[in-house]
């Protein structure tokens, strides 16, 4: 989220800035939401709240990697975005097939419908952006 002055290949130039912004928003959303729910009503839907917390941590790591920049961070971010995409798809499908496992919704329920599908669109655009960043770096 914050402005940095790094020497390694910048990942937050151009469209990357927008990605960092949305990831930052998702970090705040997922982490604060799950922290509140775990602190106050964890027993009601432990699986949902734990999943939201995991999602928050993954978002936090991706945000950090994007801001940090450089090839290692780029690869780490790419891996996490793939994991995130898998998470959204698995949890999204799971909530459709077996709604009873989720008494309360998570960030990733119904492919992130409660968040205007940003959770499923974000990793797709991030993966695209990270691939292009590598192509630009090797050129």
């Amino acid at each position: 989220m914050t402005v940095t002055q790094e020497k390694p290949a910048r990942l937050i130039g151009g469209p990357g800035l927008l990605l960092v912004w949305f990831y930052g928003v998702m970090v705040v959303g997922a982490v604060s939401r799950s922290a509140y729910q775990i602190a106050t009503e964890f027993d009601r839907a432990p699986l949902s709240y734990a999943l939201s917390a995991v999602a928050g941590v993954v978002y936090g790591f991706i945000t950090y990697s994007l801001v940090r920049g450089g090839e290692t961070a780029r690869r780490a971010a790419q891996f996490c975005c793939a994991a995130e995409l898998a998470g959204v798809l698995v949890v999204g499908t799971w909530t459709l097939i077996e709604p009873s496992a989720f008494p309360d919704s998570t960030v990733w329920s119904q492919y992130g419908m409660g968040y205007v599908f940003i959770p499923v669109l974000l990793p797709l655009s991030a993966l695209y952006w990270l691939r292009r960043s590598r192509a630009a770096a090797t050129r």
Partner: peptide, 11 residues
């Protein structure tokens, strides 16, 4: 503040 660092349309 982020748009201050990115002086293009993306800001």
């Amino acid at each position: 503040f982020m748009s201050l660092a990115e002086r293009t349309r993306w800001g």
